[in-house]
Design a binder for these strands. Sequence first.
DNA 1: GTGTTCGTATTCACCGATAAACATACTGGT
DNA 2: ACCAGTATGTTTATCGGTGAATACGAACAC
Lengths: 144, 144
Amino acid sequence: MFIGEYEHTLDEKKRVSLPKAFRTGLGKKMVMTRGLDNCLFVYSKSAWEKVAAKLQELSFAQADTRGFNRFILSGAAEVEADAAGRILIPDHQKEFAGLGKTVVFAGVSDRVEVWDATAWKSYKARIEKQADAMAEKLGEIGAL
Amino acid sequence: MFIGEYEHTLDEKKRVSLPKAFRTGLGKKMVMTRGLDNCLFVYSKSAWEKVAAKLQELSFAQADTRGFNRFILSGAAEVEADAAGRILIPDHQKEFAGLGKTVVFAGVSDRVEVWDATAWKSYKARIEKQADAMAEKLGEIGAL
DNA sequence: GTGTTCGTATTCACCGATAAACATACTGGT
DNA sequence: ACCAGTATGTTTATCGGTGAATACGAACAC
């Protein structure tokens, strides 16, 4: 279970060190793919297998499902942390997520999301405005 | 069951000591999340696990659910009390709740809330006014 | 009123994580 | 084979988190 938010910086070679808090959960080898809302999803190998299995269950018959599959799978890459706990972000993913020098790692249940710091801030601001609607949902599931 | 209100101070490294009254109830490890009305919620580990389990059931296919998950999970952090009974407040949470040097711990049934002292005072003043108005209304109709 | 104890606040010192800089190894091209 | 450019690995410095020690103050007992 990943939770929390961490800000790190890309070096000039597109490497970032993973937040300490996520290293054990992700393991050495992980899978990084295009996510939704212009961020990247990072899964541990085992979590990725579950996601991949779910995607396979989706019918081939529907055009939108095929598109979704392509979106997720073709954008995926296996990445490995080096001795210093850094991962290398592939070019196309860096571009996809519009990553600048500082990025944000966000833990969201079974995945870690990678955001451009600026994009993250504006997204968060938008989400926070919907706090009232959130509150209702929280009540529904009995969280609060 | 947490009750009561305590004022403590943050040191220059964003640590606060937990009120003695809450320590046993929260345990050593706890989870702190963004709450409503710009305060933070602190749950014991066991209470949090219940919330987390419910959140995991939600799909990531829907935009509002994704936002909801991100709001709660990325805004959360696992914190651990040190030997002196202090916890470290992460940067983004300190910012979210607008915490200054003095903060207020408020016990609210199964969770503890953390407020900036000033915000707490004005919130309380607002609530108290509403309580008076409500009492009057209740009196009018003979309820009290 | 004085002394004692417990909880909180403050300070300092240390260690580890991160980030930047640097060095080495590799690749493709000429 | 050599060079340029790029990728990968290593080292060092800085900063923030962490733990320990001390100081302060309130509550209680005598």
